[in-house]
Write a protein that binds this DNA or RNA. Sequence first.
DNA 1: CTGAAAGCGCTTACAG
DNA 2: CTGAAAGCGCTTACAG
Lengths: 318, 318
Amino acid sequence: MATIQDVAKYAGVGIGTVSRVLNNEKGVSEDTRGKVLAAIDKLRYTRNSLAVSFRKNENRVAALLVPVLDHPFFAKLAYYIEDELDKNGYSLIVSSSQSRQSKEYAMIEKLKRRDVDGIIFVTHYDYKDEAIADLPVVSIDRHFKNVPFITSDNYDSSRTACEWLVSQGCRNIAYIGGKTLVESEVMERARAYEDVMRERGLPVILESKVIKHGEEGPLVEELFANNPGLDGVFASGDAMTHAIIRHCEETGKDIPAELKVVSYDGVDIRAGELRHKIAFVEQPVEEIARASVRTLIAKIRKENTPLKTQLKAKFIHY
Amino acid sequence: MATIQDVAKYAGVGIGTVSRVLNNEKGVSEDTRGKVLAAIDKLRYTRNSLAVSFRKNENRVAALLVPVLDHPFFAKLAYYIEDELDKNGYSLIVSSSQSRQSKEYAMIEKLKRRDVDGIIFVTHYDYKDEAIADLPVVSIDRHFKNVPFITSDNYDSSRTACEWLVSQGCRNIAYIGGKTLVESEVMERARAYEDVMRERGLPVILESKVIKHGEEGPLVEELFANNPGLDGVFASGDAMTHAIIRHCEETGKDIPAELKVVSYDGVDIRAGELRHKIAFVEQPVEEIARASVRTLIAKIRKENTPLKTQLKAKFIHY
DNA sequence: CTGAAAGCGCTTACAG
DNA sequence: CTGAAAGCGCTTACAG
C-alpha cells in the first residue's frame, strides 16, 4: 500500500505538499498539483483514513441508538438519518439497546473516546443529565436537560385525531400506548387525548404501561377485557395498532363499523393494505431524521443549536 | 484528556507497561499492574481508540450494505447482525444503496482504506468479481465468484410452498417477484415454482421484472390484468404480498376463498394480523444474520470460510 | 508556494 | 518482568 511518503518521493515534493493537494487546500501551484496528482494516480494511492481520523481526532461517524431496529418507525428513521449523514460525509453506526441497556452506555463511552463523533438517540432509559449534557448528542422525542431534541407536534395532532373520533360518533374512546421511563414528547399524545375527553364530557380510558417493543399484545387484551363497550381507540404507535387489529380479527369485531381506530405513526399503515379502515397521524419521519442530523452536526461543530425542533404531523383519515 | 503518557508518569512506569496492562497481556507483575490500574482510575484515563485503530490498522467496524433499510427483512437482518457483531466487539455501519449505487463503491473504497474491516452485502447490483474477490466480504443470497454467501434453502422451501398451493386446489398459480441483476439464490424460488407446475401439468405464469423496493404495485397490477383466472399466487417477498393484498381489497377479491397466497419471507406476515389468510415461507433471518457475521469475522481473520452456508426455511400455513 | 520537522497516542520488537 | 525507542501515516505550524 502506497503512503503519502511514497507519493511525495515519486512526485519529488514534500509530504506537506501532498497533504495539501489531498485536502484541496489552495496555495499549491498548478504545476505541483499536477505532479502530485499524477503520482497518486500512478501509485494507486488511497489515503489511510485511520491515520487521518487519528490525526484530526475525529472519525466522521455518528451513531443512532434505538430500542430496536426492526420496527417500521425506527427503520425509516435509520434510513433517512443514514442518507442525510452520508450527504454530509458521515457514516452511521446503529445500535439497538432494548436487549441490553449497557449498549447505550457503551456508545457514550465510544463518544468520549472519540470513536464516534456524535449520537442521535431514541431511548426509553433514563440518564443522569450531567453524563451527556456537554457531549454532541441529540435526542428524538425524549428530552434531557440541555440536550437538543426533535419531535413532531404530538399534542396538536393528537387533539385533531381525538376530535375526529368524537365527530365520527364515538363515545367510548380509549387511549393505549407504552409508557417511557423518561419525560417524553410521546406523553403529549395522552395529554391531548385526556383534554379532548374532558372537554367533551366523555370518559377517560387510559391504558398505559411500560412495555418493550414487541409486547403490545397483552396490553391490548387487558384494555378490551376491562372495557367491553369501546367504540373508538387512539393507539400510540403502529405496533399497538397491529395488536388491536389482531385482537379484532380473533374476536370478530369489525373495524371501522364497530370500532374506530386512529394510529399514531402511520408509517406502516400508509404503505399497507389498511388505509381504508384505519385513520392515522403520520409522523414526518424524514424531516425528523434530517433535522436530527443537521442539529447533531451543528453540535459537533460547536455551533449554536435550538433546544427544541418541532415538526408538523399530518392527520389522515378515510 | 489523559494519555498513556500521563498514566505512565503517574504510575512511575514506562508506557509500554501501561499498554500491556491495557491489553491484558500477561507478563506484568501484580504489583506493577496495581499501580497502573490505580493511575488509570485516578486520572480517569480512557484509551483513545482512534490511536489504537490507526496503530493496529483495524477499526473493529463492519458494514452492512442493503438496498433499503426500512423493509422488514432488511431491518431484521440489520438488527441481528448488529447484535452478533456487538458480541464480537465490532460496530455496525449501515448503508442503503438503492438510491445511489455509488454508495456501494464508496463502501468498498472504505474497506480498502481500512475504514471498515469487512462488508456484508445484499445487493442487486453487479460487480466485476475481481474487484472484491480478495477482500473480507460476505454476501447474502447473491453470489459472486469466491465470495462466501449465506442463504436459505430457497429451492426446497419454495417447492413445498407451491405443492401446498396445488394441494389446496389451485390450478392457475402465478409466481411474482423482483428480478436481481446478479445471479442470486432468490431465483431458485422461481425455478422451484416452474418445476412444480411442469410436473403437475399446470400453466407457468411468471411475472418477474427488475424493480426497486417500493415499486411492487405496478407489477402486481400487470399480473392480474393479464391473468384474470388466477386462483393462487406465490409471491417472492412480503412487500409483493402487501401489494397483492391491496389489489384484492380494491377489487373485492377474497383471500383465501378466491385467491390463495403464499409469501416468501414472512417476517412481516408472522407479526401482523394476516396469518390466518396468508401462508408463508419463513426465512431464518436471525440465523442468516449470525452466520453472516461469523463468516465475515473468519474472513477478516483470514481463516478458512465455507463458500456457501445454507439454512433451513420453514413453511407455515393456516 | 513549498519543504523539513514535530507530534498526534498508541503498539511492539529490542535489549536488558 | 520492564523501559526506552522506533514508527504507524498523516496534518500543521514554522520558516523560508
